[in-house]
Computed example of a mutant assay.
Amino acid sequence: MEKKVNSFNSTGILYIIPTPIGNLSDITYRAVETLKNVNLIAAENIYHTNILLQHYNVKNILISLNKDNEKTQSHYVINKLKEGKKIALVSDAGTPVINDPGYFLVKKCCYLNIKIVPLPGPCAAITALSASGISTNRFCYEGFLPSKKKIRCDLLNSLKKETRTMIFYESKHRILESIRDIIEKIDENRHLVVAKEITKKWEYIYGAKANVMLSWLKKDKNRYNKGEIVIIIDGFKELKNQDVSEKVINTFKILRNFLSSKQSVLIASKIHKIKKNNLYKYAITKEDK
């Protein structure tokens, strides 16, 4: 049986409230008012959320809802919602549920037809994307890159020909290793952007080819040794036929019979005095098919 729109089983409401990702001023008037007026707040970290509440002189009841106690606490919150309570869900920073606890609770509320009111607000991935200079009309969010190298490399390899802009989160501990894997599995010449400490004092947004990005990061540890990091990778672009002439392609094909793809690209590009990157993209496209 289909559920009717706006036909809810209780008078309780779950508010999903985004909080600042760094700068405490980045919160809406509506969010502050809602935090003041709900019956209780389910927070990923009570201590962290208290800093925000004290800043805006918000006094309310807080309970913990994190990755370790999410299922247990969600049942508690559901019971309160069934009683008609209004409850706010917040994470440490940004929009709840996006790589943060709360999915189980929200899914349960949807199933039980409990009203959910999401508020708009900060999200590191979208904030970084808006200033990246990389295409924003089509993109995919992939969350945190896997910590294990093989799984991470397998994922990157599967996304090699993803035409949409790709957005990842990464930790300071693995950023260099991940950029190396992007170079190896996607393309050393693929344009990407690294955004660190968005909205905070040491914020930067830097774009370059993957190999240049790695060199740039390694020159100064302060560029990666702390803070939240977003990686944005330009999508794969199919090489147009006119970008590489038939004459160049024929030379490459002849060389490829005797040499590696990399050597063939290097020699053919020198013979015809073209950028090796164009021919390299052609070679990768054809040999992957």
Rank of each mutant, 00 (worst) to 15 (best):
H55N: 09
I229H: 08
N99G: 12
V193D: 14
V230P: 05
L145V: 05
N277A: 04
E246H: 00
Q263R: 14
I271S: 00
N189T: 13
A125K: 04
Y76G: 10
L14Q: 01
E44T: 07
V38D: 04
K262I: 06
L129K: 09
R180P: 06
Y29D: 11
L214Q: 05
S158M: 09
N211D: 14
Y15R: 08
I182N: 09
N211A: 05
K36C: 09
A43N: 11
T34N: 06
N69S: 13
E33H: 13
D243Q: 14
R190E: 02
T165V: 07
I175F: 07
L24S: 10
I232C: 06
R223T: 04
K221S: 00
K218P: 01
N241I: 13
K247P: 00
N157K: 14
Q263I: 00
N9F: 08
A208F: 11
K185A: 01
T11L: 01
P96K: 05
K226E: 13
M1Y: 02
L53H: 09
L65E: 01
R152V: 06
N257K: 11
K262C: 08
I126E: 08
D154K: 12
L65D: 05
T163R: 15
I51N: 12
V117N: 15
K59G: 06
I27K: 10
S10P: 00
Y111G: 12
I167P: 03
L176M: 01
Y111R: 14
N66M: 05
K273G: 00
Y15I: 03
P118I: 02
I205S: 07
K240M: 10
K240N: 11
E203H: 04
D187I: 00
I205G: 08
G207S: 14
L217N: 01
